[in-house]
Design a protein around this nucleic acid. Structure first.
Lengths: 288, 288
DNA sequence: AAATAATTGGAAAAAATGTTCCATCGCGTG
DNA sequence: CACGCGATGGAACATTTTTTCCAATTATTT
């Protein structure tokens, strides 16, 4: 029913044969997939340059898939574009789809789109309202710490997990307080002055996180809180507090803004610590 | 702030001078306005034919507006298009340049802002290019599963963690394959037909994830892969593959789009399974 | 380790595309 | 009505882009 364009068919064919392709042609394949939409405007030379190969390699690629040359293959993408550009954009199609599956009042995919839009709105706000002085302080707090503890439970656990992972690429010692074996207390035992705790929590605040913050303060460690408001229990127990307002749709809370903020924090920190980017990522075999 | 592209400026200039133009050139002007979006793919000849004029007339038109020839004018439209078709890409390139000039002591906070902007562009692209049929299939695959296994290592582990958390709010049995105690093999032992595996992985692909996918396939479970490309090793071992293109400014890979996609997937699934949202979140005391 | 096959990069041929030039045409003006 | 000016279309020209061919290199197999 969903009529596949010849371009789709070609891309699938490329995916199937991909593994059997020589090195350079694999590079071309990857490029085509990634830049699918702009192939129709580009010249062989530009594509070749983008792949870091010679123009003739691109032509060979096209020929390998049955076309007389690059030009003929390019036409496939052009046609696919003109075909989908003319029917008055997705809006009418989308409405038609809604009518088709009338079993469900709203197709699930529509839900997903709304959610993504909400997340976008959330990120826009983050970009707009980033509190620079606090962000700066947060970085300095981390930069100064010898050991960094990270805590976050339930919904925030994924974030804590990520922060802990990212920080492993610095020289700091990083401790993810995950409560494995019920050992929250034990994992926090040795936090002390000069260390930092990053606590991520949103209402209703997890008691494990609040506990960790109290302990950290008692031990005179610095606390960085990531939460949604200056009010609430985290404010009192933290030295720096970063706010994130998540967009939400369908009474379901996003997490993308928080993730983004944390990544931004890490990138900025890495920059400040003058880590080379190579050092922070991709060390070959063990990366994912 | 929405700075007008050069193409916009040109179109306006054309409108202003329109009356003073000779008959044929007026025809060209009309054609350009009407087919503005497809000028970038068309050859002079095609456009000339579309206007019912000679090719040289089109060239003269371009020259009249200050360009050396048609080619130069066409470039204006091409640039305008590529800038809006993949906002993420153009953004990243700009950022990368700024970073490379370390001399210009850019405050770390500035870096963070740029990173957030790049993430925004990434989300825009996600919203724009979501592959609806596949997304639908992915949901059905999950909805049909009795047990859901989730695997992702290193950078993708945080995402796996989140998915596992979110799915706990459904009736499914959820198994996070975390390899604790080196027990990847053991944790996957009992996966079987009717189950589903969600595998999140980006190049360079973690061998643990690939292993999990192979095992799942051998046991005839369905595999949902979340990765960045149809090519590469995940394609062959998966039943449904969802693509996420993460922006990587700073040679540092984003994760926000992936997070957003996964959340969208969950929201849509919850809707499909007719979970009330109240049920899916916030059950009081234990939430965070 | 040698032989063989496949892949790759450069350069030149071929094709296509874009641009210029000029003779002609049409129109308004003197 | 002739003149001049700009517009027009055809064809030659110039340029760019694509494609082919081949030699050098690299990988694979025996």
């Amino acid at each position: 029913m969903a009529k596949r364009s010849e371009a789709d068919a070609l891309m699938q064919r490329i995916a199937e044969e991909f593994e059997a392709l020589p090195r350079q042609l694999q590079g071309v394949a990857r490029y085509l997939e990634e830049h699918r939409s702009s192939i129709m405007v580009q010249r062989v030379g530009e594509i070749a340059e983008g792949c870091g190969v010679h123009a003739s390699a691109v032509v060979r690629f096209a020929q390998r898939f049955g076309y007389s040359g690059f030009t003929e293959m390019q036409a496939v993408f052009r046609n696919a574009w003109t075909a989908q550009a003319s029917p008055a954009r997705s809006y009418q199609q989308r409405i038609r789809k809604v009518i088709e599956d009338r079993d469900s009042a709203m197709p699930a995919v529509e839900i997903a789109s709304r959610f993504i839009d909400a997340s976008r709105a959330g990120l826009d706000e983050l970009a707009h309202e980033l509190d620079e002085p606090r962000f700066q302080k947060a970085m300095e707090l981390l930069a100064a710490a010898e050991n960094i503890y990270v805590v976050g439970v339930r919904r925030s656990f994924a974030i804590a997990t990520y922060i802990a992972y990212a920080l492993q690429h610095t020289q700091k010692r990083v401790h993810l307080v995950d409560g494995l074996g019920g050992m929250y207390r034990e994992q926090l035992r040795s936090i002390r002055k000069g260390d930092a705790l990053i606590a991520i929590s949103f209402p209703p605040f997890g008691k494990e996180t609040l506990y960790a913050m109290r302990v950290a303060q008692q031990h005179r460690a610095n606390v960085l809180a990531i939460t949604e408001s200056d009010l609430g229990p985290l404010a009192r127990h933290s030295d720096v507090l970063l706010k994130v307002k998540e967009g939400s749709a369908f009474a379901f809370r996003g997490l993308t803004s928080t993730m983004c903020l944390c990544q931004a924090l890490f990138v900025a920190l890495a920059y400040k610590l003058e880590l080379t980017v190579e050092e922070t990522i991709s060390r070959g075999e063990y990366d994912d």
